[in-house]
Amino acid sequence: MSSAVTSRGFDIRYRTIDLVSLTTLAVAFGVVFWAWGKLYEPLSNLAVFSYPPSSALLGGVWLSAGVVGGLIIRKPGAAFATEFLAAAVSTVIVGGTQWGWSVFASGFWQGLGAELIFLLFFYRRFGIVTATLAGALAGVFESRYEWSAYIPDYSFGSKLAHMGFFALSGAVIAGIGGYYLVRALAAAGVLDAFGPGREQVSEV
């Protein structure tokens, strides 16, 4: 422990702070997912009875953990793990979710969608474009899963509409929303150990 400068380079190994922050985010987002699941039912009923696929517009909240985890931790697997674990947490809270094991499957696909975008940029770009695309692809993957799991008998056009709404919601709520959430957290000084904190700091 002679001399250490906070590493700025790219290092795929997870430090303790990476693991602890990732899992802490997963628990916090798990609670958010759980609460959103309880709020979702009445809202989605409104959406369903106007135009059913539009209920996918409410889904973006469930895609946000992966985007936020990926933007903060910036390491391979972070987006996937944050999203999947957050989904898992939301099921084991007592009173669980109405969707049972399906939540694990959703967490898997949503996490994978976001992760692929970060991979596509070689874990080097973490701007608003990356965030938006990550949210959108998470939405596409989730919608594709829901085609099989929940709505196999929708007409093809309705399925496409469902996917479009999910991607839009993912892009806006999880992507753009997640991007600004990370910026706000960095401004509050709690991300100093991570890329977003280092980039946003002003010296006093």
Binding site: E41, S44, N45, V48, S55, G100, D153, Y154, S158
Partner: peptide, 25 residues
């Protein structure tokens, strides 16, 4: 039973939307 209640509410929206978008079957 509580879990069944929650899941059933979710299922109802699937029933309605599948009926409407899947050819009124």
């Amino acid at each position: 039973l509580v879990c069944l209640g929650f899941t059933s509410i979710a299922a109802v929206t699937i029933v309605y939307s599948t009926w409407r978008l899947g050819g009124h079957d």
